[in-house]
Design a protein around this nucleic acid. Sequence first.
RNA 1: GAGGGCGUAGCUCAGUUGGCAGAGCACAGGGUUGUGGCCCCUGUGGCCGUGGGUUCGAGUCCCACCGCUCUCCCCA
Length: 417
Amino acid sequence: MIRLIKGFHDILPEDTPKWDFLVRTAKATLEAFGYREIVPPIMERTELFARGIGELTDIVEKEMYTFEDKGGETLSLRPEATAGILRAVVEHALLRQDPILKLYAIGPMFRRERPSKGRFRQFFQVDAEVLGDDSPQTDAETILAAYCIMENIGAQGLMMEINSVGCPVCRATYREVLRNYLEPHLSVLCDDCRRRYERNPLRVLDCKVDRCVEIAAKAPLISNRLDESCREHFDAVKRSLELVGVPFREEPRMVRGLDYYTRTAFEIVHEELGRSKAVGGGGRYDNLIKELGGPEVSGIGFAIGLERLSMGIPDDDPRFARSIDVYVAPVGDNALNACFTVVNALRRAGLSCEARYTAKSLKSHMRAADRCGAQRVIMIGEDELARNEATVRDMTTKEQTPVKMDELVNFLLGEKR
RNA sequence: GAGGGCGUAGCUCAGUUGGCAGAGCACAGGGUUGUGGCCCCUGUGGCCGUGGGUUCGAGUCCCACCGCUCUCCCCA
């Protein structure tokens, strides 16, 4: 037996109704916000991710599926969606047609990490981006869109956490302030944080090691070091969120894993799973589009992990139950052809329809009908054939009605309405 | 990368001091000559992860390997 790749997973037929519900709800919500779908490929040149996400990030350094193809180019499976979307936007000059773009994409991402609960090597994300608008209301609206997806799906116990990581200017000054604070504690920090001190001291604030948390707790906060425009922007974002009633919590130590974020950063956190298992996250990026060869415009976006979102909602919701309009049961070999034509006619009339072309016992048929969630069963046996009829059973009320073959489609369509 | 747990029927798992391979669910048939869910009966279904070792005898003890899973780091 050949088994699936570690960290990958099959979505089985019993799970697809729920999965489909998540995807459809996310799409409908985003389209209600005016986003349009874009479908970039799942592979890009490695350089795109290195430039976009940052050479020094864990993702690019050690988690990408990278290989050389037969033509000698170095390609990577996408570890996140934003870089590919922006590449497409720049390549097709979409911002020239429309100075403000709102785009979303849904599909699998790939990161070669150690799998664990809620963490996969292939995982699906819903990803949304707004380009060309850096108003605080747009930040708030983006966070609202993420929140509405959750709300429409019915996820419980979720909280929006927000922070501002400043612009490159105020972040540079803050970085030095933070370094100065951390320096005397260097010997106490964990190995990782000592490395972070050199390369990206902001990440120390996000460390989960006890003694680092202690030190980080007393560290100066970037919220006190934002320059005037960043501060005003962040305050305006918070006011806008309050206007529309999005529940949020300021999290001054939140830092995101991707290098490109500026100003607003946010995460959607499950109260029970904690911050290490964010359901979604995102933020503003002021320089990324230019970095990828596009115009100097700002963007903001977020990603929601579908597997993690799925974990938060029950599997046994009646909406996810298997269901079909009609099951057609032949009783006796003579009924097989009659059933075959009936099924065909019903499907052409738009009814979902299941049949078994084996003249098993009626009891077996009924069990099969029940299993596939049939609303009605059409029984055709010797008695019915003799009268050119079929017997229609309503599986909920158990009511049975003899119906002439010619009238079957109309009868079922009429009953359905 | 570091550290735990677990591999027995399609699924979830029992399996005693080492002594005939088990249950529930699912599936098939029947109880009801043509009527589902609940109930009852019967049946199908196993390289006990793989390889070696100890033993008269190993699902059980020992060793190695493989696989899965969870935690940490990081993230969706």
